[in-house]
Simulated assay, not measured.
Amino acid sequence: MTDMLKRLETYYDAVPRSTARAEAFGPLTLFVREGDGWPYYARPGLGHSGEVSVAEVDRVRARQRELGVPEAFEWVAETTPGLRAAVEKSGLVVHEHPLMVLDGAGDAVAVPEDVTVRIVDADDPVLPSAAAVPYAAFGVPPSPQAVPQLTARIGAGLTRLAAAVDASGTALSAGQHQPVGAVSEVVAVGTLPDARRRGLGLAVTAVLVADARSRGVETVFLSATDESVARLYGRLGFRTIGTALIAEPAS
């Protein structure tokens, strides 16, 4: 395992702990969110890179069903290569996503003249529409707790939010980065369907990167949806270092 992958593993283990409790199942850890919000997932315990049995995966899935949360697992293929076979034998479907790290400060991105891309603070009037963008972008019903939870996370320094805002003060695209020490992941970058193909998601990502660097973050990374999206992030300077895997029941 490379030093970079070790650094990301430490981050993956740390970032859910601000809002979730960790339940250990042998080589696996299930993060259970405390309160409302996006549910978390199971992943390999920190430092575990060996084999995982089907029975151990099944135990976690049973606990997830008991809790009423999605039967989801997330991990890095190169870090824990022995998990995929067990997850698939348990009946879950595995999806692959390019895992990308940024070299340097990131390149500037042109922004349409009628749009401003900026960091959104906890008291910013655009926060409610920015909080709603990922739900609309990914076709997920909005959570009534989205705004207060995001406000609290921003206030606590756990999340930094950026948005592309039109002249009326409505967010068209938004995304976040979640710093833990010198590492931060860019997440939840989405654009409203009617505002796509204008480069807004990439512009939001560039602002998030600049904000992370200004705060001393040394490692900025993300998981791209697929290879075509990875090529877009490559324009900012991101490069693929591995494969992020997400397993879930067949739809």
Rank of each mutant, 00 (worst) to 15 (best):
M1Y: 12
M1K: 06
M1L: 05
M4A: 14
R7C: 15
E9H: 07
Y12R: 14
Y12C: 15
D13T: 07
V15L: 00
A24D: 14
G26C: 11
T29N: 07
G37V: 04
W38Y: 14
W38I: 15
G45H: 04
G47Q: 00
S49C: 10
S53C: 02
V54A: 12
V54L: 11
A55T: 07
E56K: 04
V57M: 00
A62G: 11
V69F: 06
A77F: 14
A77R: 15
E78C: 11
E78M: 10
T80M: 09
T80N: 13
T80Q: 15
P81S: 07
P81H: 01
G82H: 08
L83A: 11
V87D: 05
E88I: 00
E88F: 04
E88P: 04
S90D: 13
G91H: 01
V93F: 05
H95S: 14
P98D: 02
L99H: 01
M100A: 01
V101F: 04
L102N: 06
L102Y: 04
D103C: 06
G104A: 07
A105H: 03
V109Q: 12
A110T: 02
P112L: 01
T116P: 00
T116V: 12
V117M: 03
I119C: 14
V120L: 03
D121M: 05
D123Q: 13
V126P: 13
P128N: 02
P128K: 00
S129P: 00
S129M: 01
V133N: 07
V133Y: 08
Y135T: 07
A136G: 07
G139S: 01
P141T: 09
P142V: 09
S143Q: 09
S143V: 02
P144L: 08
Q145G: 13
P148N: 09
P148K: 12
Q149I: 15
Q149W: 15
Q149R: 15
L150S: 14
G155L: 12
A156L: 13
G157W: 11
L158H: 14
R160W: 11
L161F: 14
A163L: 08
A163K: 13
A163V: 08
V165Q: 07
D166W: 10
S173L: 07
H177I: 05
Q178M: 13
V183A: 09
S184P: 14
V187H: 11
A188C: 10
A188T: 13
L192P: 12
A195S: 14
R196N: 10
R196D: 10
R197T: 06
R198G: 07
R198I: 10
G199H: 02
L200R: 03
L202D: 08
A203F: 06
L208M: 04
D211Q: 09
R213Y: 05
R215V: 03
G216Y: 06
V217W: 00
T219H: 09
V220T: 08
F221H: 08
S223A: 15
A224Y: 06
E227L: 04
S228C: 04
V229D: 09
Y233V: 02
R235Y: 07
R235A: 06
L236M: 08
L236V: 01
G237E: 05
G237S: 02
F238R: 02
T240F: 04
T243Q: 01
P249M: 00
A250S: 02
A250Q: 02
